[in-house]
Nucleic acid binder design. Sequence first.
DNA 1: CAATAAATGATAGTAATACTATTATGTATG
DNA 2: CATACATAATAGTATTACTATCATTTATTG
Lengths: 223, 223
Amino acid sequence: MEFQVSFPINNKIYLRDPESTDLGKLIVKKAIDLIYTIGFEQFTFKKLAIEIQTTEATIYRYFENKHRLLLYILNWYWYYMQFLIEYRVQNITSTKLKLEMLLDILTSDLPISITKTDYNKKWLNEIVMVESSKVYLVKDIDAINKEQFFQPYKDLCAYIAQLIKEYQPKYKYPHSLSSTLIETSHNQLYFSLHLPRLTDIKNQDYQKYIKTYLHHLLFSLLA
Amino acid sequence: MEFQVSFPINNKIYLRDPESTDLGKLIVKKAIDLIYTIGFEQFTFKKLAIEIQTTEATIYRYFENKHRLLLYILNWYWYYMQFLIEYRVQNITSTKLKLEMLLDILTSDLPISITKTDYNKKWLNEIVMVESSKVYLVKDIDAINKEQFFQPYKDLCAYIAQLIKEYQPKYKYPHSLSSTLIETSHNQLYFSLHLPRLTDIKNQDYQKYIKTYLHHLLFSLLA
DNA sequence: CAATAAATGATAGTAATACTATTATGTATG
DNA sequence: CATACATAATAGTATTACTATCATTTATTG
């Protein structure tokens, strides 16, 4: 099953809409692959240009700099996450099952072909885990926040917060818990893979471990 | 009351021990100030050299690069945190009170003059909150982990995990919970300050909000 | 179909970054 | 006093993060 999903990404993030041309789409797609491969610090427009056989100057006509490109990718990801959650949850009546579906989405690989835009979802997941905090842990956070560049993350949190409220109307920290779940899913998975002494993982399946831990976290807090 | 605390920081982190000379100490001290002021991305050895009226080449004789210097600062911080916790907890008999003391340390400014090394603790706190994840969210994580550069973070987690076990021997995720507490204290405080819609903070005192949230988190999970 | 606008490519250039190397100078120690 | 060592001064390189210019290709529309 395939859908044509397109997200209203804030047009101040880019100079020219990458969705509007084949080259633009290729820039974003290959950027995901390259950031995955060499990491965001090593990633440059020059290297990306060589990869897709265009020039640095051309990429600069789409994005001011590599931070904006990463921000674009993350905006897409946050919209996509919310879309996925809403889509998967729609026919579920039990709120508990909805929250469990949410945990499943947070801890599984993204489904491959639900969208036409065929970004490599496995790698997208990985770069979100590794690089996402780098878009907000910056000196100009307040300036870029003013431009609404984190709106989809906030919307996603608000949506999850509402599910939490549905399950436990008295709960006092639905937004903090939402962002904690998202951030914890990233860093605990990263720790499991690279710094396992910061976790209690043994010879287990990583995703299963994280899912179990988050399940415990969420439902103990909402008990 | 003043102590002479000195931590056994892994000597592969630096080229020349900064603790061994006045200039070395000044490099670390001023690095904290400068990273706080301009952020780690903008921070360069050149700028630091100008700040302390020495040369780039001289700083390079102490640290291979700015990432190692940040790692050094964080190693110092992790040792210091464990020292502080052990110190404050030693005369407390109730395990619950011990854990509450831990939360207090995690969410308050660091005390100013407990050590001779007079780093600006308020700024140190801030750079730990903003920059600490940048030392591990890197492509060469596995290589630098092999060098034991995260040992004090692991030790700190193990120590907290042990306090958790003391309180609730059956608890299954003491290490994950420890790292979650530390990371969550950083990112929820950061969100409160810069992206408050990701939290439930109102017109409250930031530190108090985070402390209450973490208290709820920790003791609900251990109930 | 011609005119022209827009996107891309090719090339060059600049300031800053992240280093390395060399040589000179000052300073501590035995 | 010798000499070892730390630091200073200076220079140099490759890469990064851009900006600018102009030529060429492709698309639009009158």
